[in-house]
């Protein structure tokens, strides 16, 4: 636990009617870090993201972002503090085009009042142009400029994942949570994504938390890895430490029940 942690999760638990999806988790992420969250299926990784973003209210413990407690805060407020995320099962606005999806990310940044848009005031028109410009910039960044007018539902899988990241970036986050960004991608796409994430981190000065199953990718881009199993943190360290950790190997191979460890 460090004082300068950007995200501080302390003794956090999430219960689902007796089932502890997250069990007394302590976790902290410093500004500028890139942390991977790994673990077998059902280890509670996504639940951690859900707890951070206000989907589930932790049954115990606390989550602080930049020293502010997130307890009981609604998702949209948490986002406005500077936390954005993507989803394991891509949740784009399916029937809207790519540009609209990204523009919606700027929704809370737009200062114009609705009344202005009703009467088409020049200010609101400018505001719109500005947001369109910035959205196109983001699409360019993610290599999606050709797809901007396409219905997001019709985009190939890899592009949908990148679009979701672009939408999250539009909210100007400090902390970005990526939930299995490489799922369903082939090796080449994964490599591109890894490079892209690295560039994004520098360009937007992001702090990142990534849930990922592809160990090769995780090991190559994340200096620090946290391993969850049955809702508990079972290991934490740099890639080589994790690779040689006996508890982690057991958790993945399922040789021994981890609860005994």
């Amino acid at each position: 636990m460090t004082m300068d942690a950007m995200l501080e999760i302390s003794d956090c638990s999430v219960d689902f009617g007796g089932l502890k999806a997250v069990d007394s988790l302590d976790l902290s992420v410093a500004e500028g870090e890139m942390v991977a969250l790994i673990g077998p299926n059902g280890a509670g990784k996504t639940t951690v993201f859900n707890a951070i973003t206000g989907v589930y209210r932790p049954t115990g413990g606390a989550i602080h972002f930049k020293g502010q407690s997130l307890d009981g805060m609604q998702s949209y407020r948490i986002n406005r503090l500077g936390i954005a995320r993507t989803f394991q099962n891509i949740r784009l606005f399916k029937n809207l085009n790519a540009l609209d999806n990204v523009m919606l990310g700027f929704n809370s940044a737009s200062q114009r009042h609705m009344i202005g848009t009703m009467i088409r005031s020049p200010e609101s028109e400018q505001d719109r142009e500005e947001i369109v410009r910035r959205s196109r910039e983001l699409l360019d960044w993610m290599g999606l400029s050709a797809a901007s007018a396409a219905c997001s539902m019709d985009l190939p899988y890899g592009q949908q994942r990148r679009l979701e990241i672009a939408r999250a970036l539009a909210t100007q986050p400090k902390l970005l949570l990526l939930d299995e960004p490489a799922a369903g991608m082939n090796t080449r796409e994964k490599q591109e994504l890894a490079g892209l994430i690295e560039r994004l981190r520098k360009e937007f000065r992001l702090t990142l938390m990534v849930i990922e199953h592809d160990m090769k990718m995780v090991m190559s881009i994340c200096p620090r890895i946290i391993v969850l199993d049955h809702g508990r943190k079972i290991a934490e360290g740099n890639p080589s430490e994790i690779q040689n950790d006996q508890t982690v190997i057991e958790a993945y191979l399922g040789e021994k029940p981890v609860a005994a460890a």
Binding site: T53, G54, V55, Q74, S75, Y76, N79, R80, A84, R85, F87, R91, L92, F93, K94, N95, L96, L104, G105, N107, S108, R167, A168, A170, T171
Partner: peptide
């Protein structure tokens, strides 16, 4: 389209 996704990008649904 997706109320929950909307709230995670800062929209006060």
């Amino acid at each position: 389209e997706d109320e929950f996704a909307a709230s995670t990008i800062g929209i006060d649904t």
